[in-house]
Design a protein around this nucleic acid. Structure first.
Lengths: 341, 341
DNA sequence: CTTGCTTTGAGGTACGCACCTCAAGTACGT
DNA sequence: ACGTACTTGAGGTGCGTACCTCAAAGCAAG
């Protein structure tokens, strides 16, 4: 009734422990007939490899590197904190993670950073970087060196990455539009504040947002994006102007990096309390916005979940173990004042 | 630079391995001075016990029992499935879980079931049962026998349970009201469909719902609860009547067990598409409701998270290990058509 | 038959820890 | 100072697996 061990397999298959071991770890020097015998015994007994014992024996240590955007972003900072927290928790037994910060706007610097990673001293890499041809090549090289590579937050669909951990940007945008449409009563315009930091994600969100708004809420008109390009002062000026001359403005959809600026502009300008504002990513700023009522809703993904998921997935990829999907699916969370975590 | 082991502690403290072991496992027969020396060494070296190796050596097997309500409930069924799924995953190494179904309406039967659990063949228990004096006593006995006891989904605040895994019902109700108020344009009435299955939870949700509706949306009036008492036919009849003579009815707040009945009644009755309906718990029925537009939103908790969290927490409680809170906090999820998982 | 190759067995050590025994040590009260 | 506790050390075994060595066996071709 108890769990079968390698010894049981050996006995059942009529071979020695060494042979079972060779089969289990795909080492050479075993005839196909013998391999099949062992496989059959494993099947028959329902043997499951004891991962913790295996890791103990192997004195395995997973070494992962996270490549994250540098510069001031509340979201990235929260993510970095979550990764460190997960690293410190028991979840990350036999695991060491280091993080590298790269300037997102500088493809050359990113590639230089990726070049610094090697299979020599790493088992896996998690990347939150924009996709460029150079990044594609760098990932191909990492894969050739046998590293596990996952895309984090922002997908790298045309690369050899093993996995993507994050939410679908289009769905996030669609969700925002649905909320916006249902929150706003009557016709009017919606301002979309974008950011250039993760261009493809912004684009996809906008796509999803526009699609739902057009299909389900034709009474609302989505205005052209205000692009921040991380220039805070310029963005504040534009926002002030738009808010001041607002006639039919009813809502603002703020995509991440401009959140704080939007909130400040609203506090500066009177009569904005009737605006429906939806922002991305739960940070101290957006949290406060929800509490004080400036923000109607926040669409977010759980950074803790991202961090833990990525560690588990990287580990399983290294072991060639299957990934337990339902646990790893990152959800598009809607946060209102009343369900703030 | 590598992780310190018991040997390092022994050397650092100037004692033998046996003594370190005695201290680590709180075995008797060590002078306080020596205990302090060992503790200091542990502190100094930053020793962290290798849980998997410890469990391996101890040949530890956790045996947990889940006590869940019997009878047809899509939510409970999903939860039971999630528990079995979690049990089968690698997450539940060295863990066996069994589930018991008890009739929720029969306190006597519940207590009989609880009496059948003993520290002899179990290490922990997860309970999703209503709180009664008899249940309190039964939990006290389980605690005396050294079992870990957690409340699942529905809290047992006045008992000796070690932990509660679930969401705050009041906040869930408040969230529902906030959504309802923002979704409905103009004045009107909101119907609340309750269920008697988990009385305290229903009450608390209602409390939260009414509080937010009164404070933030005085234009909306919450009608007295329709109580189902699990009598489907009777409930359908009442609903049909209310929907037919609706004058100012603008929304329905459905608390779980009546979800399917509410959805069917709406399909029967024409002109209900303008109603804002918010339900609890994501099930096949509510999922379909969202897709087809009958439902505006679903407030739910992730059953997979509940299942995995409870296993981790029970395990840590058995080991006396700290619980990694951010991972275990169950979130109040808002699900719309566009962010269906 | 020999030679050279591949396949298999037997056995050991190690990983980090739990838990046991036995002997020797120390502290305490009388 | 003595007996009677209580403390401590040394060492062993086992958990389930990885990985290594060495020898033996099997096999095929020459």
């Amino acid at each position: 009734m108890k769990k079968p061990t390698v010894h049981d397999i050996a006995r059942e298959a009529g071979v020695s422990l060494a042979t079972v071991d060779r089969v289990l770890n795909a080492r050479p020097g075993v005839r196909q007939i013998t391999v099949d015998k062992v496989r059959a015994a494993i099947e028959a007994l329902g043997y499951i490899r004891d991962t913790s014992a295996a890791n103990l024996a192997r004195n395995r240590a997973y070494r992962f590197c996270y490549v994250l955007p540098e510069g001031p972003s509340a979201f990235v900072e929260a993510l970095r904190g979550a990764i460190q927290e997960a690293d410190a928790s028991q979840l990350a037994d036999r695991t060491t993670v280091l993080t590298r910060a790269v300037p997102t706007h500088d493809p050359h610097a990113i590639v230089t950073a990726l070049r610094g990673l090697s299979g020599e001293d790493l088992d896996g890499v998690a990347l939150m970087v924009p996709e460029t041809p150079q990044v594609r090549d760098a990932i191909a090289r990492l894969k050739r060196e046998g590293l596990a590579v996952v895309a984090l937050v922002s997908d790298l669909p045309n690369t050899e990455r093993d996995y993507f951990i994050g939410i679908k940007s289009i769905s996030a945008g669609r969700t925002a539009a649905l909320l916006m449409g249902r929150f706003i009563h009557g016709p009017g315009q919606v301002l979309v504040v974008s950011n250039s930091m993760r261009a493809r994600d912004s684009l996809e969100r906008r796509l999803g947002f526009d699609a739902v708004l057009a299909a389900d809420f034709p009474r609302l008109e989505a205005l052209p994006s205000i692009e921040a390009f991380d220039d805070v002062a310029r963005m504040a000026a534009i926002l002030d102007a738009v808010l001041a001359e607002r006639d039919g403005l009813r809502g603002i959809y703020s995509m991440e990096s401009g959140n704080a600026v939007v909130l400040e502009a609203m506090r500066r300008c009177s009569g904005t309390q009737r605006l429906t504002v939806i922002a991305h990513e739960l940070t101290p700023a957006t949290r406060q916005g929800l509490v004080e009522g400036t923000l109607s809703a926040v669409i977010t993904q759980n950074v803790g979940h991202l961090a833990r998921s990525s560690i588990r997935i990287l580990r399983n990829l290294c072991d060639g173990a299957p990934i337990f999907e339902p646990q790893e699916r990152i959800r598009i969370e809607i946060v209102l004042r009343e369900n703030l975590p």
